[in-house]
Computed example of a mutant assay.
Amino acid sequence: MFHDTVLAVVLAAGSVGLFLYSDSAWLEPGGLPIDGMRGADPFGAVLVALVCAPVAVRRRWPLAGLCAGLVPETLLTALGYGAGAAAVAGLVLLYSVASYRGLAMALGALLLSFLAYALGGAVTPITGRNWSEHLVVLIVLLAVWGAGRSLRLRRAYLEELKDRAARLERASAADTRAARAEERSRIARELHDVVAHHVSVMTVQAAAARRVLASDPDLAREALSAIEHTGRMAMTEMRNIVGVLRTDARAELGPQPGMQDLPALVEQMREAGLATRLSVEGDARPIPAGVDLAAYRLIQEGLTNSLRHAGPGAKAVVTVRHDPRELDVRVEDDGRGAASLSGQPGHGLVGIRERVALYGGILSIGPRPGGGFEVRARFPLKDSP
């Protein structure tokens, strides 16, 4: 890297300059030359430069650079030269190995530094050094190595924090997408239930009005009034559902339909031409809101299918049985049954399956043994007393 090359050049220039021109650095405190110290010469200057050169590759090949730098540094000591500022290059390389490589390689680099220092000290002609000087060198090597390891651990910790934050962000985005998909599915089910039911009722009533328009205007007028009333109800429910999608206006909030609205639903189906009877068994008890809405939508979808497919003169029976631990709802008719259905199941039945499965219920849809069609679901009431 460019910065490492610049650092290597600066270290080499400074170390060679001090080696050649600072003779006072090799004097004892009393001003006498150190015993065994070899004077500066071009060969020693080359060795000093070679000690600093590997700094240029300290990040790319830190261990190789350290080994390459320890060889001339050990020669300097073994031949009696003073390493001077060139020793800083060795510390930089040791720090780089500890900072950029794993623990095993970093420990190997520290051991190599100890061995090189011990080897140079064992064969050097320089005398007069005591154990305190060696201890200081060992402490400096350990401190530099520890600083490099500390930086590596801190860098790894920060990377882990960044990675964890990225994973949490991705998980949050996935949860948001799942929540949006679930909400879209819920709204689609609600829209289908509202539109399919009311439009089916309006279609049947419009067909009846057309047939009696000339022969019985009063009956046709009643059918048209029922169509108008059903259309207004459909628009009101759709406005409530679509209102939650608006960001610039508050939705018109209102209670969701439930089992308490079954008499009105049955009466509506009678007015549409489907003879419908409601049978309630057992003692009514509080039902969870989700189950209440799901059961109502199931009955609504079942009656809508009976109105559309059972044929003229068909009768439908809605049975609601309240058990202590279960809510059993059933819609059955005596019409044409499965013979009138073809192709894949409609979106309404798919939505009903999803609703029942959401609350752990059991759904059965199919023709009755004696003719007709049946839609039945049993919802567990786990929270019931």
Rank of each mutant, 00 (worst) to 15 (best):
residue 4 D to W: 10
residue 6 V to I: 15
residue 9 V to T: 09
residue 9 V to G: 05
residue 17 G to H: 09
residue 22 S to Y: 11
residue 25 A to W: 09
residue 30 G to I: 00
residue 30 G to F: 04
residue 33 P to A: 09
residue 35 D to L: 04
residue 36 G to E: 07
residue 36 G to D: 06
residue 41 D to C: 04
residue 42 P to N: 01
residue 42 P to C: 03
residue 43 F to I: 08
residue 49 A to F: 11
residue 52 C to A: 15
residue 52 C to G: 06
residue 61 W to E: 10
residue 71 V to N: 05
residue 74 T to S: 13
residue 76 L to R: 01
residue 83 A to I: 05
residue 90 G to T: 14
residue 92 V to T: 11
residue 94 L to W: 01
residue 97 V to P: 12
residue 97 V to Q: 07
residue 98 A to D: 10
residue 99 S to P: 07
residue 99 S to A: 15
residue 100 Y to M: 08
residue 100 Y to F: 13
residue 104 A to N: 02
residue 108 G to E: 05
residue 112 L to F: 10
residue 114 F to A: 07
residue 114 F to L: 11
residue 117 Y to A: 15
residue 126 I to M: 10
residue 127 T to V: 14
residue 129 R to D: 11
residue 137 V to C: 06
residue 138 L to D: 01
residue 142 L to W: 12
residue 149 R to M: 11
residue 150 S to R: 05
residue 160 E to T: 10
residue 160 E to I: 02
residue 173 A to S: 15
residue 174 A to K: 15
residue 176 T to N: 14
residue 179 A to Q: 13
residue 180 R to A: 13
residue 181 A to M: 12
residue 184 R to G: 03
residue 187 I to D: 08
residue 190 E to H: 12
residue 191 L to H: 08
residue 192 H to F: 12
residue 194 V to L: 12
residue 195 V to M: 04
residue 199 V to F: 09
residue 201 V to W: 05
residue 204 V to I: 02
residue 205 Q to F: 06
residue 206 A to G: 08
residue 209 A to L: 10
residue 210 R to E: 13
residue 213 L to T: 04
residue 213 L to A: 15
residue 220 A to T: 02
residue 224 L to D: 04
residue 224 L to W: 09
residue 230 T to D: 15
residue 232 R to A: 07
residue 233 M to W: 06
residue 244 V to A: 15
residue 249 A to G: 06
residue 252 E to S: 05
residue 254 G to T: 07
residue 254 G to P: 08
residue 258 G to V: 06
residue 261 D to T: 01
residue 261 D to V: 00
residue 262 L to Y: 02
residue 266 V to D: 05
residue 267 E to K: 08
residue 271 E to R: 13
residue 272 A to L: 05
residue 278 L to D: 10
residue 279 S to Q: 15
residue 285 R to K: 07
residue 287 I to R: 03
residue 302 G to E: 09
residue 308 R to G: 05
residue 310 A to H: 13
residue 310 A to E: 13
residue 311 G to R: 04
residue 313 G to R: 04
residue 314 A to Q: 02
residue 327 L to F: 03
residue 335 G to P: 03
residue 337 G to I: 02
residue 338 A to T: 09
residue 339 A to H: 12
residue 339 A to T: 09
residue 341 L to S: 03
residue 344 Q to H: 11
residue 349 L to D: 02
residue 351 G to L: 05
residue 352 I to Y: 12
residue 353 R to K: 12
residue 354 E to G: 09
residue 354 E to F: 01
residue 359 Y to V: 00
residue 362 I to Q: 15
residue 365 I to H: 14
residue 368 R to F: 09
residue 375 V to W: 10
residue 376 R to P: 02
residue 378 R to K: 14
residue 379 F to I: 10
residue 380 P to L: 01
residue 381 L to A: 10
residue 382 K to R: 15
residue 383 D to S: 09
